[in-house]
């Protein structure tokens, strides 16, 4: 009987209507300056529309579709769906199944979102700053969202700016 009361309390707690927001969600993180440097490059041009159009071309090269664009604010947002199967994860699921754990869902597909923002360089009137960010949503084989995250691997940013640099015929400088 005592356990039943406890169970009632737990269930009521689980369905509680007010989740708590992480305290740092709207605060600048201690690494935000480093993140900005990682995600930004300086280009020696003032024609920001051309830079943005070059960005659109690079995104098209990589199979992205544009979701939003605003030339006045210098924004492009694009996304694409891609395969998300991971060999190691499948191997793990097979082992679980062999041990009698039943079918374990594994990652199946992902949506990658990328945004490119081109802005004036406040510390230099001769150049512009381009900044990109990547996000990912992963769905598993049961159709549930298994992960939502921001991608922070430096290779991804380096790779994108190399492509943008070639497309715009301009050199990308670290800021």
């Amino acid at each position: 009987m005592k356990n039943f009361t406890l169970l009632c309390v737990i269930i009521a707690g689980l369905v509680g209507c007010t989740p708590t927001i992480p305290k740092d969600a709207f605060k600048l993180s201690p690494t935000s300056l480093e993140d900005r440097q990682l995600q930004s490059r300086k280009f020696d041009t003032l024609d920001r529309k051309v830079l943005l159009a070059s960005g659109a071309a690079v995104l098209q090269d990589m199979g992205y579709a544009l979701d939003e664009s605003n030339a006045t604010l210098g924004i492009l947002t694009a996304s694409k769906k891609a395969d998300a199967t991971d060999g190691a994860q499948i191997a793990g699921a097979v082992v679980v199944a062999l041990l009698g754990g039943g079918a374990m869902p594994v990652d199946k597909e992902q949506k990658i979102r990328i945004s490119l923002v081109v802005n004036e360089n406040l510390s230099d009137s001769e150049s512009s700053i381009a900044r990109i960010s990547f996000q990912r949503i992963v769905w598993n084989t049961q159709g549930q969202i298994s992960r939502v995250e921001t991608l922070k691997e430096p290779d991804l940013y380096q790779g994108f700016f190399e492509k943008l640099s070639k497309s715009a015929f301009l050199e990308a400088h670290l800021i």
Partner: peptide, 30 residues
């Protein structure tokens, strides 16, 4: 837009005529 990027958001929609920006942050939560 720059602040939302600093905070880890990506812009979903932006309208400079109306003055609106919509952005999403994904970090284990949305």
């Amino acid at each position: 837009v720059a602040t939302t990027q600093d905070l880890g958001f990506i812009v979903d929609k932006a309208d400079s005529d109306l003055g609106t920006v919509t952005a999403t942050k994904l970090s284990g939560y949305q």
